[in-house]
């Protein structure tokens, strides 16, 4: 699992690559944590670019849910973008597409979340 950062306008973009399974979830949670703190009404929205994520297990989905909860508490904005076909199906079966903001690509997510 690898994470790299960038920006689209005022929106922070976290590009994630690899598998988010039981062996990687803790590392992903740790890598994600510092990027959640600035997600406030006055800070940067955060988009997670999942175009490089090949699989997400239940424990990986849990990390996403916790992140969304934290950002909601901070009154910030977070979204996930560019799911691969397999991860799209995982989101549908687990109903995570109903509890997280999901966009077809990073541009669409940044346009929605940005100022």
């Amino acid at each position: 699992m690898e994470v790299s950062t960038g920006n689209v306008g005022a929106t922070r973009v976290l590009r994630v690559r690899g598998r988010l399974d039981h062996s990687q979830a803790k590392d992903f949670e740790a890598a994600l944590a510092p990027h959640l703190l600035p997600c406030t009404p006055t800070g940067s929205p955060l988009v997670l670019d999942f175009s490089g994520v090949v699989y997400v297990s239940s424990v990986g989905l849990r990390v996403l849910l916790l992140a969304a909860k934290q950002v909601k508490t901070q009154q910030g904005r977070i979204a996930i973008a560019a799911l691969t076909p397999i991860v799209t199906e995982v989101f549908q079966v687990s109903h995570f597409n109903m509890v997280l903001s999901v966009f077809p690509d990073v541009a669409a997510a940044a346009a929605e979340l940005g100022p």
Partner: peptide
């Protein structure tokens, strides 16, 4: 439950 419901 669905996973999303079970953990939220």
């Amino acid at each position: 439950y669905s996973l999303a419901d079970a953990i939220s």
